[in-house]
Simulated assay, not measured.
Amino acid sequence: MKYLFFLIITGVAIASCNSAAESSSKNLEALLKDSSKFTSIQWQDTAIDFGAKKMGEVVNITFTCKNTGDKPLYLITVRPSCGCTVADYTKEPIAPGKEGKIDAQFDTKKSHPGDVRKTIFITANNSNRAPQFLAFTGTILADSSANK
């Protein structure tokens, strides 16, 4: 009986979490369709060169954006171009005049030696409807002669 109660409570909790996430996702998608909610975004850097790193290192890259409009800015989608990069980002609304961040981690073990160029695709409620792309480049050295 205790196990049945636990399973029911767990199922309700999971369903409510999925429902909240679904609702939040629909609200953010609605922002993309409502031009009265559009704002403008300015990136401090759209391309970063991390230099030379040896194979096996994890490279941390931070992109900073500023809300230069008069409505809250929402970073709706932040999607790295491949599985060698993971990204975390400001999920709360970014007030006008304030900054948000995208923190990316690039795992060189999941890439290859040589020159690399990786991108991160961003969707936001910005008035310039063109997709936002951020890029980082560098060189992965197969030996331990990388400059740190």
Rank of each mutant, 00 (worst) to 15 (best):
L4A: 14
F6K: 13
G11C: 13
V12F: 14
V12I: 15
I14T: 03
S16N: 08
C17I: 12
C17V: 09
N18T: 05
A21F: 10
K26L: 10
N27V: 03
L28I: 06
E29K: 14
A30N: 13
L32V: 12
D34W: 00
S36P: 11
S36V: 09
S36Q: 07
S40D: 05
S40G: 00
I41F: 01
Q42W: 07
A52T: 09
K54N: 12
E57I: 00
V58I: 13
V59R: 04
N60E: 10
N60Q: 10
F63C: 04
T64W: 03
C65D: 04
K66T: 14
N67H: 06
T68D: 01
T68Q: 02
Y74E: 12
I76R: 10
T77R: 15
V78D: 12
G83C: 11
V86A: 14
A87H: 06
A87P: 02
Y89P: 00
Y89V: 00
E92T: 14
P93R: 06
P93C: 09
K101Q: 02
I102N: 03
D103Y: 09
Q105Y: 04
Q105S: 11
S111A: 11
H112Q: 08
G114T: 06
V116F: 10
R117D: 04
I120K: 04
I120D: 08
I122N: 07
N126P: 00
N126E: 13
S127Q: 12
S127E: 12
R129Q: 15
A130K: 13
Q132I: 15
L134R: 00
A135N: 04
F136M: 14
F136L: 14
T139M: 12
T139E: 13
I140G: 12
L141T: 05
S144V: 08
N147A: 12
K148L: 09
